[in-house]
């Protein structure tokens, strides 16, 4: 009985995880294979996969999704590490700055997206303000930062939200590492850049990579921000999948499910590749 105790105690959580993971994924997989007895589809096939993988719209969406995820993770990680390094120092007003740095942690993504809409659209606050001070002739002359080709609005929202998320972890790691390693390296002749490159970075890298992989996974699969701030073409994969799934034509469902499965497989592969790459970098360091 004692040996079973950990399994019993873990079972409620595992049950929920497995139910949604295997159940949801299983049903999704069946539907993506055109196996939907309820509408008379009883012969499984790969038509939906062939359909989406030969569709330029899908491929462009896949590229856009990858670009958004990688760009927002890389920018957030870089800025979070830089901020963490600055906030580690002693200076007047440090507590206030640290508080401001972490201020948006409890704010939902959706609120951030609304804020970006208010501020950065061509009819938004900044466009009107720029027009009011005669920087631009019309509010519409304001550069397109939302619903734009480079997904600047989407990336900006993710960066806004993820910097403090990664930053909190970076600050904790920096606190655990302390400053003695750097002090030692300095007495051994390492200059500021060498101390960062050869001492601090290898020490914090495993932790930073672990938290950034969470951000990468999230940005690959998130729906609401690309939906609110993205262009209508190409759309991020999760938006495309939901649109297909909610299409009145039920024949679109297998393709929607195939997209969901592709997103899952792709995310998993990307995260595995990222983790392997991280491990290699850490080992090399």
């Amino acid at each position: 009985m004692e040996r079973l105790r950990p399994y019993l105690m873990l079972s409620p959580a595992l049950l929920i995880i497995m139910l949604f993971f295997l159940g949801g994924l299983g049903v999704g997989l069946m539907r993506s294979l055109n196996y939907m007895p309820i509408i008379g589809l009883t012969e499984p096939n790969l038509d939906a996969y062939v359909g989406i993988l030969t569709d330029r719209t899908f491929l462009r969406s896949l590229g856009l999704t990858l670009y958004i995820a990688i760009a927002s993770t890389a920018i957030s990680m870089t800025l979070a590490v830089a901020s963490g390094l600055l906030l580690r120092r002693s200076f007047r007003g440090k507590q206030v700055m640290t508080f401001l740095f972490q201020l948006n942690l409890p704010i939902p993504h959706i609120v951030g997206a609304i804020g970006i809409l208010f501020l950065f659209t061509q009819g938004g606050f900044l466009a009107r303000a720029a027009h009011a001070v005669h920087l631009i002739e019309q509010p519409a002359d304001f550069p397109a930062l939302v619903f734009d080709r480079y997904a600047i609005g989407i990336i900006a929202e993710y960066v806004w939200k993820e910097i403090p998320f990664i930053g909190v972890v970076v600050l904790a790691i920096l606190q655990a590492v302390g400053d003695e390693y750097e002090a030692l390296a300095q007495t051994l002749g390492a200059n500021r850049w060498q101390r960062f490159r050869h001492v601090l970075l290898p020490l914090i890298l495993p932790g930073v990579l672990s938290v950034s992989v969470i951000v990468l996974a999230f940005t690959l699969g998130a729906y609401e921000i690309p939906f609110m701030l993205g262009r209508s073409f190409p759309q991020a994969l999760p938006v495309l999948a939901v649109r297909s799934y909610t299409d009145p034509d039920l024949n679109q469902r297998p393709q929607a499910m195939a997209m969901a499965i592709v997103i899952t497989v792709f995310s998993t592969l990307l995260i595995l590749a990222y983790m392997e790459l991280s491990r290699r970098i850490v080992r090399k360091e």
């Binding site: 003695e180 002090a183 030692l184 300095q186 007495t187 051994l188 002749g189 390492a190 200059n191």
Partner: peptide
């Protein structure tokens, strides 16, 4: 003279 050029090495 900054620590990296001072030539005083510390063993912690």
């Amino acid at each position: 003279t900054p620590a990296e050029r001072r030539g005083a090495v510390m063993v912690f």
